[in-house]
Amino acid sequence: MATWFTEKQTENFGITAKVKRSLHKERTDFQDLEMLETEEWGNMLVLDDMVMTTEKDEFVYHEMLAHVPLFTHPSPKKVLVVGGGDGGVIREVLKHESVEKAVLVEIDGKVIEYSKQYLPAISGALEDPRVDVQVDDGFMHIAKSKREYDVIMVDSTEPVGPAVSLFSKGFYEGIAKALKEDGILVAQTDNPWFKSELVRQVHADVKETFPITKVYTANIPTYPSGLWTFTMGSKIYHPQRIPVERFTNIKTKYYTSELHNACFALPKFVKEIIE
């Protein structure tokens, strides 16, 4: 008899994947963690019954969270990733030669441990000498950092459990202080179909904190609705006014220089949410 995993994305809608087997399951100090081997998506990381990443479509999220801000900034040298214990964003960050140090602050060390075991193609870059992996509270790390980072990326789960504080206005204000005078913030900000109020509120909070605030989207099939938003806050640099020569040739599967500009063209209903 077939086994299926269903993420209940709303009270009335879910996404289902056929499961070959459960690779690991435990209750960590912070959340329920499970690694599943699925027929369609390969190995899948699930936290609190929500899909975090899969081997098949992970590149979309990780590339779009990393490359949009890193090409917007003319010379990012020190980068912080809050969350992202699977290591996918770090892998993409290190493709930029200007990056001298990438700091990963993940509150749940078990996410790092089991990603290394079951998602090696995603997590492999965590062993790079340029990477500083810290098992710590990202909110507190930001609070202690002052004018330290060129780019900060918030790779959090949805705003439940340990990630709730990562969607607060105070957190974005702390990030502004942790960034250098020309720094950039990018955060994953969920989907406009089921979480329109969250998208609206985050945009409003970031807009009150950063002179330049932009929302962009990507298609991620295993995330709720498939249409995902990211919110950028920039102190100086506008992501749609980048010299063509800045786009260096890095290996990607989703992100391109053409898509960099196109991803900021929002569907009308999304524009209405943030306006």
Rank of each mutant, 00 (worst) to 15 (best):
H96K: 12
H96L: 12
E97S: 15
V99G: 02
E100M: 14
E100T: 15
K101G: 11
V103P: 02
V103N: 04
V105N: 02
G109D: 06
G109V: 07
G109F: 12
K110V: 12
E113W: 02
Y114P: 02
S115V: 10
K116D: 13
Q117P: 12
Y118N: 06
L119Q: 08
A121G: 12
G124E: 11
L126Y: 10
E127W: 11
E127H: 07
E127Q: 10
D128Y: 14
P129M: 15
V131F: 00
V131I: 00
V133I: 08
D136L: 06
D136W: 06
D137S: 03
G138R: 00
H141W: 15
S145K: 02
R147C: 12
R147L: 14
E148P: 04
Y149Q: 03
I152Q: 06
M153Q: 07
D155Y: 00
S156W: 10
S156P: 13
T157R: 09
E158G: 15
G161W: 02
G161L: 02
G161T: 00
A163P: 11
V164T: 13
S168I: 05
G170M: 10
F171P: 03
F171Q: 03
F171S: 04
Y172T: 09
G174V: 03
G174P: 00
I175S: 08
A176G: 08
A176I: 09
K177E: 14
E181M: 11
D182R: 08
I184V: 07
I184R: 01
V186L: 07
Q188P: 11
Q188M: 07
P192K: 11
P192A: 06
W193M: 15
E197G: 04
R200Q: 10
R200V: 01
A204F: 14
V206N: 08
V206A: 10
K207L: 09
K207G: 05
E208W: 01
T213W: 11
T213K: 04
